[in-house]
Amino acid sequence: MSALFLFFAIASCLGAVLVVISQSVVRMAFWLVVSLGSVAALFFLADADFVGAAQLLIYVGGTLVLLVFGVMLTASGPYMKIETSPGETAIAGVVGSLFLFMVISSTPSGSAQLTLDEDGHTVVKRTGDWEAIHDAVKPATSTPDDGSFDDKSDGNTLRPIGWALLGLRPDRVDITRETEAGKKKEAADPASGPTAAPGYLLPFEIASVHLLVVLIGAAYLARAKRRSDEAS
């Protein structure tokens, strides 16, 4: 597990770095495939099978193929190169490292990792800041067991995700929020039913409208104008 994680983590980071320093667009695409494919593997390792498969199918098999297709259609020479001046790269590298340092240093310290309990179930063990954070935010988002997403399912999150997209959340028990805002809301409109956890019906449906609109837009730009064809 940890060896696999290490392998794919390094592969995805290395792939990302090589995307940045590659000069040829298709090589960039190749390294991007390596990076994003490894990210999909990390998803599998994090028990997110469905997300990992979606990443492979949509991102690597769809979006990246589309990008490479775009490269082929717009290549002016046999191998399209992009020159980036060394100075620019150096500046970008320094700024990037500084930002990376900022992100890392702002991340809470301590660790959260998976361990086995007596029954052989994996549980999340948190130490340091993460434990403090978990204790602080837990009351508002109580979930069946210790608050983290259920681990007994071994990555079989398909059904809960399906329920969530329908708007039902069997993975989260009904909770009475102890926060002020939650109380108020429920008091204000009891007819709205228990809002135990967000159900994602609306985003799921509205994303389809979005995709439709976007598809029309892309098709409009890509298609040739009929009238100009007739004129010529």
Partner: peptide, 15 residues
């Protein structure tokens, strides 16, 4: 044996 086995299979084949 994955719950989304078919989906994974199609995804990998698409690579």
């Amino acid at each position: 044996s994955a719950d989304c086995g078919l989906f994974i299979m199609l995804a990998i084949l698409s690579l």
